[in-house]
């Protein structure tokens, strides 16, 4: 097919620019409607056991959703200067503990080996203190430099 050649049309172009510049604001209930459904559905993720403390009798079961555990570990990891944590994926529980995989963006100039160690220690300590978990390994994937 022949390539159609379009002559510029100043009237159409200026009308188009007016429409293009027009500010359009979403209706106020959109955010609530969307978030009500999103919160109700959540993500169908695994439910993981939280061990009971030895000092108390074991008279109930505590579990945590994977998405919540991921958030706990990620927020602890996020305090590492120069690094910003994206995904936090928790592997299957092995005899030595869980494996955790983090996707991380590093600020330019961050000494990555040192920062990665700080991050690992934060994850191990948050897992121990907030979830009662032993973490076998923390794999870190530097996805980008920002």
């Amino acid at each position: 097919m022949a390539v159609e050649h379009t002559e510029p049309d100043p009237t159409l172009d200026s009308a188009r620019d007016e429409l293009r510049e027009e500010r359009v604001t979403a209706p106020p209930q959109l955010l609530d409607n969307v978030m009500n459904t999103v919160r109700r559905e959540g993500r169908s993720t695994r439910v993981l056991d939280v061990p009971s403390t030895r000092s108390l009798p074991d008279n109930g079961h505590t579990q945590v959703r994977e998405s919540v555990a991921a958030k706990i570990l990620r927020m602890a990891a996020d305090r590492t200067p120069g690094l910003r944590v994206g995904r936090c994926q928790i592997g299957e529980a092995e005899t030595e503990g869980y494996s955790v995989r983090l996707t991380v963006r590093a600020d330019t100039g961050t000494p990555i080996p040192e920062a990665a160690e700080v991050l690992r220690r934060s994850v191990l300590s948050a897992a121990r203190n907030q979830l009662g978990w032993v973490i076998a390994r923390v794999d870190i994937d530097i996805a980008d430099i920002v």
Binding site: R39, G42, R65, E66, S67, A70, K71, G86, R87, T103
Partner: peptide
């Protein structure tokens, strides 16, 4: 970063 958090279920 927000997209990755949301992928992990962070509403």
């Amino acid at each position: 970063v927000l997209v990755e958090h949301a992928q992990d279920g962070d509403t």
